[in-house]
Design a protein around this nucleic acid. Structure first.
Ligand SMILES: [Mn+2]
Ligand SMILES: [Mn+2]
Ligand SMILES: [Mn+2]
Ligand SMILES: [Mn+2]
Lengths: 157, 157
DNA sequence: TATGAAATTTAGCCAAGGCTAACTCAAGGG
DNA sequence: CCCTTGAGTTAGCCTTGGCTAAATTTCATA
């Protein structure tokens, strides 16, 4: 299929690698998703810790576990990773608090969460479903897409 | 802390269970996300297998690996799970094909994928970013949200 | 202040989904 | 017809993030 006349200036040479390019782009997209997965737990935890600190003055593992729908040992294990990554501070058998880095991440996540929920609602999704879907969607919304969402929700009262 | 008797209006009766309700809803949302994660690989694989069969007449593990950005042994292992779940058919050292169940899932996933991409583009996201973000977002879009997306993209030419 | 309940952590299990190294198989060219 | 080469698989490793059971610690209160 010779379509070199379709795009003057673009030679057939581009055709063979076009497939490879597409494959590479697709691989990149999948890699991005896998990458996002690695940050998901961290993001949800710091977001939730920030919420609990705001409303309760502290974030207890037992409350995190209840809100996340997991068992306390799971929280302990995941918190250890957050400590390793410098996102939270912990004293044994006591509550958990965010480091500065953790606060920064939490703020960004909360903002993104709100914008995603607002966008879904603006698109006609009911608020319960919006909240539920947003919890997963948020982690895959790039900065650029977030800007588009923001534009959309603000540009309509 | 038993304050069940000093109730000047709403405070105690509604607040205590309201919190639990909110916590339970939140836990449900997180559980949904974890659940979606378990289907993600299956969805991406059958979607990709369908695409490869359409364009190449067959889906070879080596091509799946290239498109997914993973190594061949990873594909082999994941395909084994898909076989276990009745989504694909395989003869050793040969190509992979979808079962009826796999075709059904692939069709649904491809449709959803297209709608999510179209929605992002309609919201002003450029098509590369839309494609990239959609690869992750799609798995967290509920049926109801998908309907809203569909409405949105069709109701604007 | 002693004790028991609740919270937290530890230990040890599991499945998913990545990887590399090494092996097996299929197929085409010489 | 063999042999090389590339595709596919197997074996075995790792991390993540779930779980249960059991140990440990804190804290309220009797
Ligand atoms: Mn989330
Ligand atoms: Mn969130
Ligand atoms: Mn996907
Ligand atoms: Mn997809």
């Amino acid at each position: 299929m010779d379509n070199s006349h379709d795009r003057p200036g673009v030679r057939d040479v581009t055709l063979a690698p076009a497939d490879e390019r597409a494959a590479a782009d697709q691989a990149d997209a999948f890699a991005s998703v896998r990458n996002a997965h690695e940050s998901e737990v961290a993001e949800d935890y710091v977001e939730l810790i920030a919420e609990l600190v705001d409303s309760n003055g502290e974030a207890r593992p037992v409350d995190l576990a209840e809100r996340l729908g997991v068992k306390p040992p799971t929280v302990t294990k995941n918190i250890s990773r957050l400590v390793r990554n410098g996102l939270v501070r912990r004293e044994r058998y006591r509550s958990i608090f965010l480091t500065e880095k953790g606060v920064a991440l939490a703020d960004a996540c909360r903002r993104r969460h709100r914008i995603v929920v607002a966008t879904l609602i603006a698109l006609g999704v009911d608020s319960e479903t919006a909240e539920r879907d947003a919890e997963g969607i948020e982690h895959h919304v790039s900065d650029e897409t977030l800007v588009a969402f923001e534009q959309f929700v603000t540009s309509r009262g």
